[in-house]
């Protein structure tokens, strides 16, 4: 059974500046929680508190109801913490895995068996006798995770475990990690700044911005209904525009219609968040938000169109993704913009 976590009224300051403020956060047993946020949002600070390596200046972090400051050695050993930098020890891969097991008093044969099984799960058993510090970054991170898994933790904390890997290696890495965790009732908290990874693997998502929790919900809900513009940015929305909701629920940018409508927000100022593939380009004169095409370039499976929306007194840059078969506008061409309701969000 995985561990349960509770974070209560936690505050952490560094150099007189508050870097983390979490009023309340629960993590259920065996849940896969992702913490998403930009660089410097306080993600690693939160993870270090959960791992009991650091203590908050104020408030409590509890693991199964016990504050981390009161955790004994045996209770701490239920927590596995995979740091962003692998921090392997200057010995063989196998000994790196066996050492924490030796600290737990396991006999030699059992240590060896658990270490080799964990390496096998992460597809790196062939590296067992290699000096750990001579491995590539990706291999080191796999060994790092295998070392935590070998100790069979009830709580596994992963700090950007695939940092530094190329996209293809990241995909393989996460597939292998998912497989390694598949038959374990372990609670995981994983830090990332990549929304696509969180959306794919998380049961629940925490969005952290400037050291504060902005939203906690399922990946689907946060993606569909980000709480504010900062969350929308973190979730990968490509376009943010200042807008206005009319009494009948129509969403206007400047005085121009956008094709969006909301019944959830009352009349007043709003923000339109739209993914690039939500931006529909139509010829000028067909209504919508007027814009000028700045450039067109090839993307992965689509074409990227850069636009300037022409609002009174300003030009707002926008990006649109078009299918490779769709007719592309020419740079300098005047067009109009509509937004696809399913891929846009209207926020207050």
């Amino acid at each position: 059974m995985g561990a349960e976590l509770t974070v209560r009224d936690v505050r952490v300051a560094r150099g007189g500046r508050q870097v983390l403020a979490v009023d309340h956060l629960d993590v259920k047993a065996s849940e896969h929680l992702f913490v998403l946020g930009p660089n410097g949002a306080g993600k690693t600070t939160l993870l270090r508190l959960l791992s009991a390596v650091d203590r908050p200046d104020r408030g409590d972090v509890e693991v199964d109801g016990v504050p981390t400051r009161r955790l004994g050695l045996e209770e701490r050993r239920r927590i596995g913490y995979v740091t962003q930098r692998p921090a392997l020890l200057g010995t063989t891969v196998l000994r790196n895995l066996e050492l924490p097991l030796r600290w737990r008093g396991l006999p030699r044969e059992r240590r060896r068996a658990l270490a080799l099984a964990a390496l096998e799960r992460l597809q790196v058993a062939h590296l067992a006798q290699r000096p750990a510090l001579r491995l590539s970054g990706g291999e080191q991170q796999r060994v790092n995770i295998a070392r935590s898994l070998a100790c069979d933790p009830d709580l596994l904390l992963l700090d950007e475990p695939a940092a530094g890997l190329d996209p293809e290696a990241r995909a393989i890495f996460f597939t292998d990690l998912e497989r390694a965790l598949a038959d374990r009732a372990v609670t995981t908290v994983q830090v990332t700044h990549r929304p696509e990874e969180a959306l794919r693997h998380a049961d629940r998502l925490v969005v952290l911005v400037d050291g504060a929790v902005r939203q906690v919900d399922t990946p689907e809900m946060i993606s569909r209904m980000p709480a504010d513009a900062a969350v929308a940015t973190v979730m990968g929305y490509d376009n943010l525009l200042t807008a206005r909701v009319t009494p009948d629920g129509a969403v206007l940018v400047g005085e121009w219609p956008t094709g969006l409508h909301t019944d959830d927000l009352g009349p007043g100022p709003a923000v339109v968040a739209a993914f690039a593939n939500a931006v529909r380009i139509v010829p000028s004169g067909r209504g919508g938000l007027p814009a000028v095409v700045r450039g067109v370039s090839p993307g992965r499976g689509h074409r990227v169109v850069l636009l300037d929306a022409r609002l009174p007194g300003e030009r707002v840059p926008l990006v649109s993704h078009l299918g490779v078969d769709a007719p592309a506008p020419a740079p300098g061409e005047a067009v109009c913009i509509w937004f696809d309701d399913a891929l846009s969000a209207v926020l207050r």
Partner: peptide
């Protein structure tokens, strides 16, 4: 801190 987190 890393060694402590490994259970040392």
């Amino acid at each position: 801190g890393h060694l402590r987190s490994l259970g040392a």
